[in-house]
Simulated scan of single mutants.
Amino acid sequence: MLSFFRASLSLVPAVLILVLARLLQFLSKGEQEEGNIYQIMQYLRDQKCLIVLDAWEEIMDNQSENYTKYNIFVERLAKEFHKSCLLLLSRRKPNNITTLELEGNFIYSKKLLPLIKEDVKEFLSAEGLFGTDIALEKFLERYNNPWILKRIMQSINNVFNGDISPFLNNGNGEVTIVVDKLTIGFLNQQFKKLSQAEINLIYWVGIRRNTALWNHLVQDSKQFITYQQLFETVENLIGRHSLMSKNTEDISVIYILEPVIVKYSNERFIAENYAQINQIFINGIINGCELFITHAFITAYPNDEELNQEQMRRIVQPIQKMLPANFRSQQELENALKKVLSLLEDKGLSQGYAYQNISHLISAGKQI
């Protein structure tokens, strides 16, 4: 007979000794209240049990002695004989699982992919959402993450009584993508766990609006990270964090973000650029690692007029509209931006992205 034990590491104290105590009580049917991994392994050799540890990323985020002990527990279950099974649920793939897979143990990892259109349709129908075929098709193109879907569906039910069509129409002919506060909070937490290189790569892909080929990423990043670092960062975002994926329908692989992440990362990119440029206005100091130095607002390689127009509308113009808040006139802002150009020349950065970006902001201000 198979028994079942589950612990959510985000809801219960994640200290291993407490989790093991609960597991030992369960396996011994209450006869033992405390013990160690050796005693648990003894029980698992004699009985079949499915052990589920949810929110494993909570353990990974706490690189302490406790985390080391958890890994020892996992590795013993992976390498020693027993009749049971351990299932780890995590938003990110643990490094030791990859190592154990390569060693040929009975270890398997499964990445949950975004829902396919048929699954989303069933999901919507079960929740009482409806819409025209065109509306459903547009909705399916933008939302396929189960967690985000659940949030959006709840909001559509509350506001539109389940009708998708008005939700998608923002009044100017464009299909809107809604990112609510809970989703923003969730994504903020995910981004806190990323390295700056990983965040920068998400921005590079987002700037290209999901049209980034490998050679585009190499070109965009070559002044700031090595080829190997780029390769490892792409692999991490796809394989470990599941924040980026590949579109393989065409001959060449295109690196893409979910539409919700594209919007979130674009707004985050705009806000960070505004803050960094505004700080330079205040103290007159350029550190050299600012986003407007490492990322092109408008990509020049390859020449793509339609993409460049979208980059102007979604990146340059929003930043330009935020900057005048601290100036009495557009001319004052232009003068401040020209001072930034001078600072860039002094630091030998007049040939890079930064000089082009500031020039774009000046040009956009003149068109207002």
Score class of each variant (00 low, 15 high):
M244N: 09
S245D: 14
K246A: 10
A300G: 14
K347A: 13
H82E: 06
I116C: 15
K347N: 14
I319S: 03
N236Y: 10
T294C: 06
Y38H: 11
N215R: 15
L53M: 11
E267S: 11
E290N: 01
S242N: 15
V205K: 01
N273T: 10
S64P: 06
Y255C: 01
G365C: 14
F123E: 08
V260D: 01
P114C: 10
L89Q: 02
Y43D: 03
E249G: 01
A271R: 15
Q320F: 02
Y355P: 03
V120A: 06
I270E: 02
S195T: 14
K150C: 03
F167C: 02
F167G: 02
I362D: 11
W147V: 13
S363W: 10
L140T: 11
D119H: 04
S155R: 11
T176N: 15
R151K: 15
L89M: 08
Q219Y: 15
E272P: 00
K181M: 12
A364I: 05
N326I: 13
G352W: 14
K192Q: 13
Y70P: 09
F4N: 07
V12S: 03
N144A: 08
F130N: 10
E198R: 04
Y274C: 03
I164T: 05
A275M: 07
E267I: 00
S350G: 07
E310N: 12
F123A: 05
E249V: 07
I261Q: 06
L27C: 10
L182D: 15
Q356T: 13
L86F: 01
E127N: 12
Q189T: 10
I164D: 00
K181P: 00
S221K: 09
L124D: 05
N188K: 12
G288P: 01
N144R: 09
G35D: 05
K69G: 00
V159T: 12
T211C: 08
F292R: 03
N210T: 07
F281E: 01
Q320R: 08
A336I: 01
A21V: 03
S10N: 09
Q190C: 08
I184P: 00
H216P: 05
V179E: 07
L77M: 14
E198W: 04
W147S: 06
N247I: 00
K222G: 03
L337A: 05
I72F: 10
I37N: 00
H241I: 10
I177V: 15
F4W: 13
Q276I: 02
N266C: 09
L129Q: 06
T233C: 11
V52W: 00
Q330P: 07
Y70G: 11
I362W: 04
I319T: 03
A300W: 08
N105P: 01
E141L: 13
V178R: 15
K263P: 00
Q367H: 12
R240C: 02
S8C: 04
D180M: 08
